[in-house]
Design a protein around this nucleic acid. Structure first.
Length: 340
DNA sequence: ACGATTTGACCGAC
DNA sequence: GTCGGTCAAATCGT
């Protein structure tokens, strides 16, 4: 392996060290309770961001197929790439896709469309997609829809995704993302405020963007984290955002490595959210934002999501636990053979 | 008129 | 030949 591996390794180590450092700070603040919940959250998110990046890099260097977190919108988060597919209901599409297609980073998400309050949330991931095809898939009860980035031509963005309703649970959509966005449509203001006309299609994906503040608010709103087997966890206490809660909003997700990282809080905001004219807001995270692929910064890919809270058994919790385990010692020998 | 969606046709991989 | 993915003309919605 050449220098590229060395580069990745050092990057990974740096990310982990950074995460450790922030964790250390957080630990200190927690013990002294001198910090506001928001700051603590920010720190936690930074930690998660670092670990996400490190894990993504590990995955990326392992093979051309990456399964980063994807975060489908409003409704949930992506499943953990590292975790085994507990649900077993989904086929591992990304694998076969990668064999047939070139090495575009591919990963899957499971999005559950919630219909609490009579509303059906769509799996908005914050990006603008254009449907270009639909196919009946052998053995599947529902057709698979194909989407590509709306800015494929104008911004030469080759991101695409496939959406298929689960056979077992119609409320669940399996979303396979391919390629990362190069259109940067998520960058704050630039959002294509194209009011999606077809909200109608219950879509698992309409994609309008939303301003950061709105994101936070919506996010906070009645957060729900759906873990891999779609258990719904109410998130609220441990996660405190500034204001109002809208019980209509929900976020379910499972996170690959972790999700949570609110861009706003992190410094770089990634507007994966979209203001929905219907009133339901989503909080979405884009799967594509990972710096391991290039131009986007670390915080970019770790979007938001935050749905993790201490009340869940989400990956985040695991991470917390791990952090404790190592006692936040930055001297931890990351370069120890076998550590990875 | 323009942009998005639908849907049958086409193409490559197996 | 079958199947999954994409193309592109027709259609729809604004």
């Amino acid at each position: 392996m050449g220098s590229s591996f060395e580069f990745e390794k050092s990057t990974i180590v740096n990310e982990l060290i950074q995460g450790m450092e922030v964790a250390r700070q957080l630990k200190f603040h927690l013990s002294s309770s001198s910090t506001s919940p928001e700051n603590q959250l920010t720190m936690l998110q930074k930690i998660l961001s670092s670990y996400d990046t490190a894990l993504l890099l590990l995955n990326w260097s392992d093979s051309s197929v990456v399964q980063p977190q994807a975060v489908p919108a409003m409704v949930n988060l992506p499943e953990s790439p590292i975790s085994t597919n507990e649900s077993g209901d989904f086929k591992d599409h990304h694998q076969d896709v990668s064999k047939k297609r070139k090495a575009l980073p591919t990963w899957k998400d499971h999005v559950k469309i919630c219909s609490d309050n009579g509303m059906e949330n769509s799996g908005d991931d914050g990006y603008s997609w254009r449907k270009y095809g639909q196919k009946d898939i052998l053995g599947a009860k529902h057709p698979r829809s194909y989407y590509r980035c709306t800015y494929k031509k104008t911004r030469t963005c080759h991101a695409s995704k496939q959406v298929q309703r689960s056979d077992n649970d119609p409320a669940i959509f399996e979303i396979t993302y391919k390629g990362k966005h190069t259109c940067l449509q998520a960058s704050n203001s630039v959002l294509p405020a194209t009011p999606k006309k077809k909200e109608q299609k219950h879509s698992h994906d309409h994609h309008q963007q939303q301003q950061p503040n709105e994101m936070l608010i919506n996010f906070r709103a009645n957060l729900r984290v759906k873990t891999e087997d779609f258990r719904v966890v109410e998130a609220s206490d441990s996660f405190s955002f500034p204001s109002g809660i809208d019980s209509n909003s929900q976020i379910s997700s499972y996170s690959p490595y972790s999700q949570l990282v609110d861009e706003d809080l992190m410094g770089t905001f990634s507007p994966f959210i979209s203001p929905d004219t219907t009133g339901s807001s989503y909080f979405s995270v884009s799967p594509y934002q990972m710096n391991s692929f290039g131009q986007l910064s670390g915080s970019d890919y770790t979007e938001i999501m935050s749905a993790n809270t201490s009340t869940t058994n989400s990956p985040i919790l695991d991470l917390d636990f791990q952090i404790d385990e190592v006692d936040l010692d930055s001297n931890f020998p990351f370069d120890t053979p076998g550590f990875f």
